[in-house]
Simulated scan of single mutants.
Amino acid sequence: MTTPFEPQASAFGPVPRQPQVRPGRKPGPIAPDVSSSHRAWLEPVREKYLDSDRTLGDLGEQVLLAKSKLSELLRGVGLYPRWEVIHRLAAELCLPSWPLHRLWRQAALDAGKGREWIDRSTENTARATTGHRPPLEHIALRQIVSADYRFYAQAFLGDDALDSAVEDTFATLWLRWEAALRSPDIRSFAWSILRTTVMTRATHRDGRPELEAAVFDTVTLQTQTSPSLGAAQMTRLMELFKAISRLPAGQLDVMVLLHLCGFTAEKTSSLLGVSLATVRSDERRAVRYLESAVSPQPDTEGPLT
């Protein structure tokens, strides 16, 4: 028996990419100093443009923007673009405007744009950002995984950033839905978006994401169930979470889902879009590292017991 979103049984499986012949030069790469929130909407727009047969000159004529300015926009350089321009660009590239507007607005706030500037930029196109619905398959996937995505994000983000990260994940997935359909596994594609969104918003120290929220919740629970929890045990918990945060991405995700979220290996496999064997292999490698990095408590078998 198969489950939804398995690649071999998916009703909306990979769609072969059609070769495109497009004259003209491609825009340069995205500037390295572009913020993560700006990239969240810019990358899907570039992806859609590069998949089309449009030239910069042709597209610029339709969105009423000089070719050089359009090139700058697609590289993320120059002034942050007003929504009227992005809205016209979305219409020409057949991109859904509602998720694009959500991500554009957040990036505008991060770029220091005031709400008055945002409202002025949006007022003539407000109606066009409402009334759109994502594909049915997108809605179905969201219903299945959104609660589990929140559990994962909760390990890295506070309550104020948690819901926004999950909402932005599904907005980005909607914008990139055609690319998701072409991918080997939609679940893996969606998870990569969630992970990128969460990691760019998590607090980092020495190049690793901090599991502060998970540490706080675990210590609170341990204190409630074991009021006599000593300083040594609490220090060990902190060491354990720091060691987990230093794991490679795949092993980190597996350990968070299995041991912090409490998911089964089967559920973890489904969420990540990887095989059950991969989940178990990543867990074994992670446990071996943690056993070498964290001293076990007396009368225990290892750091996770």
Rank of each mutant, 00 (worst) to 15 (best):
142 R>F: 03
157 L>H: 08
36 S>R: 14
243 A>N: 00
195 R>Y: 15
124 N>C: 01
250 G>K: 04
304 L>R: 07
36 S>K: 15
56 L>I: 08
84 E>D: 15
75 R>I: 00
252 L>I: 03
2 T>R: 06
264 T>A: 15
269 S>N: 11
187 R>I: 03
28 G>A: 06
10 S>V: 04
114 G>C: 06
283 E>G: 00
35 S>T: 09
274 V>K: 02
273 G>F: 08
245 S>M: 01
238 M>V: 09
106 Q>W: 00
123 E>C: 05
213 A>F: 09
298 P>S: 13
28 G>V: 13
168 D>N: 14
158 G>C: 09
67 K>S: 01
212 E>V: 08
43 E>L: 14
149 Y>T: 00
286 A>N: 09
149 Y>A: 06
111 A>R: 14
40 A>Q: 08
257 L>F: 00
281 S>D: 13
264 T>Y: 14
105 R>F: 06
191 W>F: 07
243 A>F: 05
192 S>F: 02
23 P>A: 11
263 F>S: 02
92 E>W: 03
125 T>E: 10
145 V>C: 01
161 A>L: 05
34 V>A: 15
54 R>S: 15
196 T>Q: 12
159 D>I: 13
285 R>W: 10
183 S>G: 03
252 L>W: 15
265 A>S: 13
183 S>F: 12
22 R>H: 04
233 Q>M: 05
62 Q>P: 13
167 E>R: 11
141 L>N: 01
204 H>F: 15
83 W>K: 04
130 T>H: 12
145 V>Y: 10
113 K>T: 09
116 E>S: 07
171 A>P: 07
300 T>S: 11
246 R>L: 11
166 V>P: 09
112 G>L: 04
203 T>P: 04
120 R>M: 11
235 T>W: 04
119 D>M: 09
283 E>W: 07
234 M>F: 03
52 S>G: 07
286 A>V: 02
254 V>C: 02
147 A>L: 12
152 Y>V: 02
144 I>Y: 07
3 T>Q: 11
66 A>G: 13
80 Y>E: 02
240 L>E: 02
58 D>Y: 14
